[in-house]
Design a protein around this nucleic acid. Structure first.
Length: 423
DNA sequence: TCTGGGGTCCTAGGACCC
DNA sequence: TCTGGGGTCCTAGGACCC
């Protein structure tokens, strides 16, 4: 049977999550900030109309936001992650083939029907998600993922579509593609949009009709895939099984510039601890660890520095103390005093499965205790993150990121459960 | 004072091999 | 004086996504 792709995309997802537990804000402007309260990363429609762009620095827009009575939230990923799961659960109950593409988007593979039937069914899915979770979504349908993305874009932009739009066998699809600027096509970022503009390729339709050889040369095979997808030739299959991670990153900006090695060491230890728990959760081992460190690239004065190093482990490990030891060696290798660092991080790479553990003939195995890690993970899962932690992570953590406007973990923490009163 | 974090994939170029 | 060519592997950097 012929199949088509549908993209289910949550509208202003983080903002919608915050509003769910603050219904009095349902028609009021709100924004959600990135970690460290740095940038605006989600905006309600009212805020979009104010001209505040995605990624705008908060401190530069604080006055404007206050002037318009915008409610500001720090990121609350425990909440967004949990609501995302609930949305995905609903979709998986309705359809067998679901690819969770990001925290707020999922691709579905649907049997082909005529345009009107498809839209009717999508509207039903949309209503189900609203009923069960309370998050509004838009749904776009197309013969390829890239066209489904564009259909979603159209569904969101035109209010008369009621949040659902299908490009499958659409009579005027070329006219519609002509109305979409090329930078809004999935896979075309700023750099590629500039390259395309220099060649006079400004809209999705121009890209669809572009020369294959030229595209392959300047936009790599990925660009060529995008072109094929615009032509209705599906190159990106639905991946219902999420692939195992190839790397795990943990990094944060600091609340204030950090100069001292001891502070950086604590920060790096905290990141290692977080990443190691994720590593174990997916039953993997890391073969190497990157450590990186940088000063504030926006700072006008003061010397700049951005460094990283890679440490190969003698044998793959997921044991936090081992990872801490090598991360700390890496940090010592790249640290230089006299700089105001604003960010550090680690990346676990060369991940392999637990069963593939390869001993090192020339290096005695580290003394590692799986049961200790299991106990730590169990306690922290049961009683909350960081309930038990390593001394190396420090206690005061004066460098820890800023989160001045964080909402409660309404759905993932007993203490924060919303209370309903009937009076 | 204050500008996020976590991923993937592709390519070019160097090292190294025979 | 004049010193090949083809292959693989690895890494860094750059592009993209949300």
């Amino acid at each position: 049977m012929k199949k088509v792709f549908a993209l289910v995309d949550c509208n202003n997802f983080y903002a919608a999550c915050e509003r769910l537990f603050r219904p009095e804000l349902s028609d009021k402007p709100i924004v959600v900030l990135s970690n460290n309260d740095g940038c605006v990363i989600a905006r309600s429609n009212e805020v979009k109309k104010l001209g505040i762009s995605m990624g705008a620095p908060y401190f530069k827009n604080e006055a404007l936001l206050r002037k318009h009575n915008v409610t500001v939230f720090s990121s609350n990923y425990a909440l967004y992650g949990d609501l995302s799961h609930r949305v995905m659960d609903v979709l998986q109950q309705l359809e067998p083939e679901v690819e969770m593409y990001s925290i707020d988007e999922a691709f579905l593979s649907l049997p082909y029907h005529n345009g009107r039937e498809m839209c009717k069914y999508a509207a039903w899915i949309k209503e189900k998600v609203r009923q069960c979770v309370g998050i509004p979504v838009s749904i776009g349908i197309g013969p390829t993922k890239t066209l489904a993305k564009i259909a979603t874009h159209i569904a969101k932009k035109n209010s008369q579509q009621n949040g659902v739009f299908s490009l499958v066998n659409h009579a005027n699809s070329d006219a519609l593609l002509e109305s979409v600027v090329v930078a809004d096509v999935w896979g075309i970022g700023r750099q590629y949009a500039d390259i395309l503009a220099r060649r006079g390729i400004l809209h999705a339709l121009d890209l669809k009709n572009a020369d294959d050889v030229w595209v392959r040369k300047h936009l790599t095979v990925n660009g060529l895939r995008t072109v094929m997808e615009l032509r209705g030739i599906s190159c990106l299959p639905l991946g219902s099984v999420p692939p195992a991670k190839k790397s795990i990153v943990s990094s944060r900006s600091f609340r204030r510039p950090v100069c001292e090695f001891s502070d950086l060491k604590e920060a790096v230890a905290s990141y290692v601890s977080t990443a190691a728990a994720k590593l174990r959760a997916q039953g993997a081992l890391a073969g190497a660890i990157h450590v990186f460190l940088s000063t504030n690239r926006f700072a006008a004065k003061g010397p700049q520095r951005s460094v990283s190093t890679m440490i190969k482990l003698p044998q793959p490990s997921s044991y936090t103390p081992t990872l801490l030891k090598y991360a700390s060696q890496g940090l010592a290798r790249i640290y230089k005093s006299g700089y105001r660092y604003n960010k550090a991080g680690i990346m676990l790479v060369e991940l392999s499965g637990h069963l593939l553990k390869q001993a090192n003939l020339f290096c005695p195995a580290e003394k590692e205790s799986d049961s200790l890690m299991e106990a730590v993970d169990t306690i922290n899962t049961r009683w909350g993150r960081n309930m038990v932690r390593f001394a190396a992570e420090g206690v005061a953590k004066s460098w820890r990121m800023k989160q001045a406007h964080k909402s409660p973990a309404y759905t993932t923490c007993w203490k924060n459960l919303p209370v309903v009163r009937a009076d």
